[in-house]
Design a protein around this nucleic acid. Structure first.
Lengths: 349, 349
DNA sequence: CTGAAAGCGCTTACAG
DNA sequence: CTGAAAGCGCTTACAG
């Protein structure tokens, strides 16, 4: 660990017998070489760099250049909350991909995990400032902070639609509304008329749930005799309760808000001996949790979270590179509806 | 987006009517306040900071301080390869946690995803240098790069055990060897004597697989009449082949190298109507993939990847903070053997 | 084609 | 208790 000081441009310059700025020029030689330096000099400098094992200090470069090709990621929710159905992971993978394509690295802000409330500003300091721009996410952002970021002109994109009074900003999100519509139309087409919507009460107020629900509602309301029944996850978790509900209401199909709900519902159905899809159709409005041990392929909506992450990066980078207008941009990423074996015609059993 | 220049310490100083260095002192006021500044001055400076919305530039701070409380993460494998059983995600979560506890942020190096070979040094530049230290991972690291990092005294910890000629460095890894031993002993105790070991041929040379396998071997070799049979994943994927193999060899238990192998094996067993665990016992030497739709709890080894990530951070940070000796430190994180419903006494069916 | 100089925004001895 | 100055390692006009 004898790490004597790393070599600097000054060291290289000394060894090569040129000035420090020349070393810098050689280092940053643009493609095409608009800056002309004699071959000899380049050679000498290159050699000296080799000999000393010189590598530029990125921090100094940043300070001098005023930017650093770093994309910040800040999550208002504790990471754990995203463990659910691998949501966070997929978005992160998309962001990584996008960042890589644009030659950016990622700064993952970890601060304040311990506290209940995570915060971008600590002691008045914008911890995101280290990055050129940031991607924010989380169910409950601090509105004041978002306003301050906007006021300061700090470039960011939110993952998920969030409406904050007084300001407007970029966001990207899966098109949950259309997902809900497609799924419901699918069931309606299969002659189902009484459809249960399974969701946890704690998740019902989330924007992403509301959008799904709204999509389902629209289709149901446009269909004579059709009705949508909200079923709490706690009911589904209890096989007996679930059976009673399904029977008394004549429910023939279940739409599950996400993959977890799907799994729970499916488990309960097994226990009350209802066969999928003959006795009851069931689908998930979210990505599946790996494959189940059954041979059934699940009917579900692919949320394309990777694409959401990539889209957020693309938007952010286009702002950072100035190749984009200043207009606020809010985009929906299409979901894909995948028809599997867990849904079929009503009464086919 | 009218972002006129952000205020600097100089701006604050001007407004407060003090010198720039005084602003810096106020900003960095140590606990206890070993540096004495009059209440009045502090007040004035604080006010000015408020008025201007001043926030220090972290990059400049880094340059001046020589460190930045940033932990680098570099993965020699493409991220996708870690999607398998959520490996990468869990480690990352552990790293995030650890970093947070120590007040570090994370720098995720994305470079070179596009290329086949990812590289730390680009054009001779150590891209990790932006971070104070780094956590490296990936099946096939570039040995030359690791040597160079070591030579330069750059602090890093490897996730996974990698033996690189000429150098030694810190690593942290799950105790796969012990995991294999425990699992095998469990089966031996249940009177199984012919045990199949399911693994993909492409994964067999990996250190993590070798350690598991070695652990299993040891127990089997210490048991009279016991034998361990290596079964390629491709055989397991074909139900007919699997049945033949199990029958001719009298295999009564399967050890699956990871959760994916487990799932495939389980699916095939269903198709050839072998009941788990009555006809055959089966367990996984890796974390499970969520729950299966069956009511069986899987017998498996919990790898504690989060702990691996956290341990790596702890080690790295203790080196960065100088609170640790320079001795190379290589540690094994214990796994937990979880007995579920998929294993039972031989011939209980 | 190359060098001297200023500057990026901080921190940290060193004087007073 | 506070200020002037040097320095962190670069980049970028500006002279020559």
């Amino acid at each position: 660990m004898t790490s004597r000081r790393r070599p600097t441009q000054a060291d290289v310059a000394r060894l090569a017998g040129v000035s420090q700025s020349t070393v810098s020029m050689v280092l940053n030689q643009r493609d095409g070489g608009s800056i002309l330096i004699s071959e000899d000099t380049v050679e000498k400098v290159r050699n000296a760099m080799q000999v000393l094992g010189y590598a530029p200090d990125p921090i100094a470069q940043m300070l001098a250049q005023g930017r650093n090709r770093l994309l910040g990621i800040f999550n208002y929710d504790p990471t754990n909350s995203y463990l659910r159905d691998g949501f966070y992971y997929k978005i992160l993978a998309g962001i990584e991909n996008g960042a890589d394509q644009h030659g950016y690295n990622i700064l993952l802000l970890t601060r304040n995990r311990a506290d209940q409330k995570r915060s971008i500003f600590e002691g008045g300091v914008n911890t995101l400032r280290l990055a050129d721009g940031a991607i924010l996410m989380g169910k409950y952002p601090n509105h004041d902070e978002l306003r301050r970021l906007t006021r300061e002109g700090y470039p960011f994109v939110y993952i998920g639609r969030r409406d904050v009074p007084e300001i407007e900003f970029d966001w990207v999100i899966s098109d949950y509304h259309s997902a809900g519509k497609q799924a419901t139309q699918h069931l309606i087409d299969l002659k189902h008329r009484v459809i249960g919507y399974v969701c946890e009460s704690s998740a019902f107020d989330a924007n992403s749930t509301q959008e799904r629900w709204r999509g389902c509602q629209e289709v149901v309301q446009a269909t004579p005799d059709a009705q949508l029944i909200l079923i709490d996850q706690s009911v589904v978790a209890d096989p007996a309760q679930l059976r009673d509900l399904l029977q008394t209401q004549h429910v023939t199909a279940l739409i599950c808000n996400d993959a977890i709900n799907f799994r729970e519902a499916n488990n309960s159905l097994i226990q009350i001996s209802l066969r999928v899809p003959d006795d009851i159709s069931i689908l998930s409005l979210g990505d599946t949790l790996g494959d189940f041990a059954t041979s059934l392929r699940v009917t579900y909506v692919r949320l394309n979270q990777e694409q959401v992450g990539e889209a957020a990066v693309n938007r952010l980078v286009s702002r950072l590179d100035g190749s984009s207008s200043d207009r606020v941009q809010q985009s929906l990423i299409p979901c894909e509806f995948v028809v599997g074996d867990t849904t079929t015609w009503r009464g086919s059993g």
